[in-house]
Design a protein around this nucleic acid. Structure first.
Length: 572
RNA sequence: GCGCCAGUAGCUCAGUCCGGAUAGAGCAUCGGAUUUCUAAUCCGACGGCCGGGUGUUCGAAUCACCCCUGGCGCGCCA
């Protein structure tokens, strides 16, 4: 059936086509920004009039004469230079809300075509602790996956971890020397702190020439598949993986690991294929793809014969298209890699690894800055660890819960603090357009007022409180078409109807912030309704209708937050 | 040098792809609301040459061109 906007758009487009004879005339229906202009407006008449060199107001009147929207609207009128303003009737709104309440999907329809979509996100490096630099990719990537999954797609959440490369020689050699038992048996491992381990290995590498030489020999052995080297490499990867999983569990993020090493065997054939077909050629001893419009070539093999991340990315892309059947590949990485991905996509198209109808997207995100405007670091100038950030968010939330609701049992306070703390952390990131940088601010993130997760979660808890307080049974409101009397009810109801189209737009554009903005507005409209309209004490039939609005609000809030990977609490 | 991104209220940001009505929100500030379903709330006020300029258009934060400022990226790291 489509969203209300789509339906209005279609009807008006038909009238436009009938009047002008232009079949693809766009009605351009949008919600109004000012309520005096009704609920929706169609802007299409004006641009069409321009094209036809006609008077837009006159054209609008003709379209209006052709238009019968009596089943949806209580008022349809032309205004200004050629707008058509639409006001939805309360009878229609009531029926739509009744139908929405009976829809398990809350208007969020599955996409017309189910596609396999690869989302490449998180991607930490083995032997390094996850830090603040991984939070955006992990949180945004997860939200994008949830959005696409909600649209019914077959989403592959790929963790393209950095588990291969020259630094492994150093790490393997270091582990051999400092924990030979772990290397042999692998049962216990002395790597407590991955950051520390990496730093120590690096320090030794820089200071000890004999060690450095041994490390270089290790690289060769590892790449040649030496069993013992591979075994030690596995041990290091396993330790890292366990560390990553701790973070993912805290964040409730699920990933499928396919690291760089997975593509190792494909690299020579990629280079050979590109060279054989003349797509890449030698330059200064290196093998490069020269792409039009780029300053630098796309290098796939170094002078020394080694491969680069460009080669791995190309191999991964090819694999995803050919072996996994991806119709869309989304890379959730730092905006600084924009040029790299433009080159990667161009090279993949040129090589035929990605046919034109496979969409390649770089969902780029900006940096997290400290209060000083520089990228966020600890006071000592180190990376802020992800687990520390999560712990701090939960601890801060815990203090607030204890202050606001001291009578709750400690265990429940803990559980609520986790939901609020992690939710606040995620929401603070997701509410902004991914592409922009943002300033990290604990106080704003966990503030109880304004556009924050706690505010949304609180709105949810308040709705649930109504049902608890009134010991409301489902039969009391299920199946009714709510009476829409008050303006605040209509405003809430109209907004509830837009959940599906909003989530679909966010999924299409890889923009979780669209959902965040929607939910904030929903919570605001709900609290306005809540403040003005008594629910439990209302007379029937208003009471049942308001209960239905409350139930719908709670469901949409929970479902919407769920799309962002944020949980709700029945009480807070 | 070449390229990419950003510049919107005191602060933090939406809106820019696809041009519409008087440019929105949050915070901060100020004023108001509570015998009432969680005040972790709500209502109101204040606050803008949308970095500058030129152009296209009935109409520009949005499109084009030029300039200024800041950030970032640019062959053998990822």
């Amino acid at each position: 059936m489509g969203s209300l906007i789509e339906r209005l758009d279609r009807r008006i487009a038909e009238a436009l086509a009938a009047v002008t004879g232009i079949p693809d005339a766009a009605a351009a229906v949008k919600p109004t920004e000012d309520e005096r202009f009704g609920d929706f407006q169609a802007n299409g008449v004006m641009s069409l009039a321009k094209r036809l060199k006609r008077n837009p107001r006159e054209l609008a009147r003709e379209v209006l004469a052709r238009l019968d929207l009596g089943d949806i609207c209580s008022r349809v009128e032309t205004a200004g230079p050629g707008f058509i303003n639409l006001t939805v009737s309360s009878r229609f709104l009531s029926a739509e809300l009744g139908a929405l309440a009976r829809d398990a999907r809350l208007g969020l329809d599955a996409a017309a075509v189910r596609e396999t979509i690869v989302v490449d996100f998180s991607c930490p490096n083995v032997a390094k602790e996850m830090h603040i630099g991984h939070i955006r990719s992990t949180i945004i990537g997860d939200a994008i996956c949830r959005l696409l999954e909600a649209r019914g797609h077959d989403v592959r959440r790929i963790n393209h971890i950095g588990d291969w490369g020259t630094q492994f020689g150093m790490l393997i050699e270091y582990l051999r020397r400092t924990d030979p038992e772990a290397v042999r048996g692998g049962k216990t491992l002395a790597i407590g702190d991955l950051e520390e381990f990496y730093r120590a290995a690096k320090a030794r590498f820089d200071a000890d020439p004999e060690f450095a030489e041994a490390a270089r020999r290790e690289v060769v052995k590892l790449q040649a598949g030496d069993p013992e080297s591979v075994a030690v490499w596995r041990v290091i990867c396993d330790v890292s993986r366990r560390k990553f999983e701790e973070n993912y569990a805290l964040l409730d993020v699920r990933l499928e690991e396919m690291g760089e090493s997975f593509y190792n065997g494909f690299l020579p054939e990629i280079a050979a294929d590109l060279a054989a077909r003349g797509i890449a050629r030698e330059s200064d001893g290196a093998l490069c793809v020269f792409l039009e419009g780029f300053g630098a070539p796309f290098m796939v093999r170094k002078r020394d014969g080694g491969y680069l991340y460009a080669t791995t990315d190309l191999a991964a892309l090819k694999y995803r298209v050919e072996a996994m059947g991806a119709r869309r590949i989304i890379y959730v990485t730092d905006a600084r890699q924009k040029e790299h991905f433009r080159q990667l996509f161009a090279a993949a198209r040129l090589a035929g690894y990605a046919p034109e109808d496979v969409r390649l997207e770089h969902a780029a995100f900006g940096s997290i800055l400290g209060a000083d405007g520089a990228p966020l670091k600890t006071r000592a100038g180190r990376n802020v660890l992800l687990k520390d950030v999560i712990a701090e968010a939960v601890a801060r939330a815990r203090r607030v819960v204890a202050e606001k609701n001291p009578e709750l049992p400690a265990a429940e306070q803990d559980a609520i603090a986790r939901i609020i703390g992690v939710g606040a952390l995620k929401y603070f990131d997701l509410r902004q357009n991914p592409s922009s940088d943002y300033v990290f601010d604990w106080d704003r993130m966990l503030a109880l007022d304004g556009d924050t997760a706690p505010y949304l979660q609180y709105a949810y808890a308040r709705v649930q409180s109504i049902f608890r307080k009134g010991a409301v049974r489902e039969e009391e409101y299920a199946g009714v078409d709510p009476l829409i009397d008050a303006r605040v009810e209509a405003r809430l109801g109209l907004w509830l109807l837009r959940f599906g189209e909003t989530a679909a737009a966010a999924a299409r554009d890889c923009r979780p912030n669209i959902v965040a903005g929607y939910l904030y507005e929903l919570a605001a409209r709900f609290t306005a309704f809540y403040g003005e309209c008594p629910v439990l004490k209302a007379e029937e039939p208003a009471r049942a209708g308001r209960l239905l609005l409350c139930r719908l609000t709670a469901r949409v809030l929970a479902a919407g937050l769920r799309l962002l990977g944020i949980e709700v609490s029945e009480r807070m």
